[in-house]
Nucleic acid binder design. Structure first.
Lengths: 239, 239
DNA sequence: CGTCAAATTGAAAGTCGTCAATTATCGTGG
DNA sequence: CCACGATAATTGACGACTTTCAATTTGACG
């Protein structure tokens, strides 16, 4: 039906370089510096962890012990298919949360796209929040709904869009997330990551970016650095 | 980049045949008959509404007043693109909820795929749940997480799968949702709906189903009635 | 029985995936 | 400091799958 390709050669790094830096039972506000006005600082105990590029934060099927907030770096959450391919569910940058589940097992894996620092918030399900704590409950609900919105946006992106539209939307999205200071975007992830996120192949990603460059819509001073040269055109393309 | 097609001719029925049947401030348990062990009956006031096939339940951008649970029939939630195409986010059958939002505006539209009955639960945001009501908060959280799971599954489906895989997964999913009593599935939706859900065209949907029939994987006694003749093969195809 | 929308089928075109080769980039070691 | 090797990225050629355009068939309803 389709041949195995792509991530077949992407060894899943089960060797997580995990270093417990601190057991900071602090209000998280001072740490996160709030990238985009998330829910108000959730008064939950957090533990700061660092992960090396490519290492695994948790694995699909692992017991849920925490959910996480990115302090620095980028995390990907993804699922591996039986044929070795993978679908990246999302990239999570500074201030964003991932790994929030209602069940007892993680349904996705999480890996460090770059060296990164995260805060793990102890999480034993919504019920264990402490019954009196309405503020925390509300904050967690907001986080969950944020995840839902992003998942729905992602579906939209994957469903009815050409490669060019997907890439354009992807770049604009990154640029809009603080990654785009001054009209340029630093890609923390590889072409393979982008392809697995957008449901494309690395070749198509590469070709499409090259085409954008020929069309003077972007510039690629290096593979991981994109300059948005004509943002209006990108937005028109992304629709 | 791509031509407008598909739903260009799908008039958006803004004429909702809305009949307020009752203002039942009841625990919902007796009504829902719980299709699949949802969250325990949420003790929220619900209002029973009925909608005619094709009518609009709410529209993208509408103020959020409620979220909904399907009593009977099927609802689709979808988004309309600027070129007239649409992406269907999901189909919602008996016992399933839709329209739960954290913001003040609906981000998707909801329409009746078939004549249907729903319960509308007053919803003014999580904060308005009534601070003491931990049980309701938890139930709503569970519902939100259910929506998240389905959205992620949908992304997976749209991302890296062929038309045949998408259709197979779609049929199996329907069959697994109680629609599949006795190895057959009744499709409440048109081919266009299916196409807009799976990110395909009606022609591809039709061709793929025909191919399944030629392969004796399914039978199509009528366009809207699918008999799963070889479920194992379907599952193998869906992966 | 006629009309209209939905669904199916065919043929041609286009996009994207696949396979393969080349180039660029970066870290390591001489 | 440069050479080397490995991984990432780019590019080309070809083919497959899906879309597009068009015509036909089926089915529902008055």
């Amino acid at each position: 039906m389709h041949t195995a390709f792509a991530s077949a050669d992407i060894a899943r790094p089960r060797t997580g370089t995990l270093s417990t830096t601190a057991n900071a039972a602090v209000s998280i506000r001072p740490v996160t510096a709030d990238a985009r006005g998330e829910a108000a600082g959730t008064p939950l105990a957090g533990q700061v962890l660092t992960f090396a590029e490519g290492s695994e934060i948790y694995c699909e099927g692992d017991e849920v012990r925490s959910f996480y907030k990115v302090v620095s770096g980028t995390v990907r959450t993804c699922k591996f298919l039986s044929d070795g391919r993978r679908q990246i569910d999302g990239f999570h940058g500074e201030g964003e949360i991932f790994g929030l589940e209602s069940g007892s097992e993680h349904r996705l894996s999480a890996e460090a796209v770059s060296d990164c620092t995260v805060i793990a918030y102890r999480w034993r399900g919504f019920a264990a929040l402490g019954n009196g704590d309405g503020a925390a409950a509300q904050a967690v609900f907001q986080l969950a709904m944020q995840c839902l919105e992003r998942a729905q946006e992602h579906s939209l992106l994957l469903g009815r869009r050409s490669a060019a539209q997907k890439l354009a939307a992807f770049l604009i999205n990154l640029a809009g997330r603080g990654n785009g200071k001054g009209g340029s975007v630093d890609l923390a992830m590889t072409r393979q990551d982008i392809a697995d996120y957008l449901g494309l192949t690395i070749e198509t990603v590469s070709r499409t970016l090259s085409q954008f460059e020929r069309d003077r819509v972007i510039a690629l001073p290096s593979a991981r650095h994109v300059v948005l040269r004509n943002r209006a055109a990108l937005e028109a393309c992304a629709d």
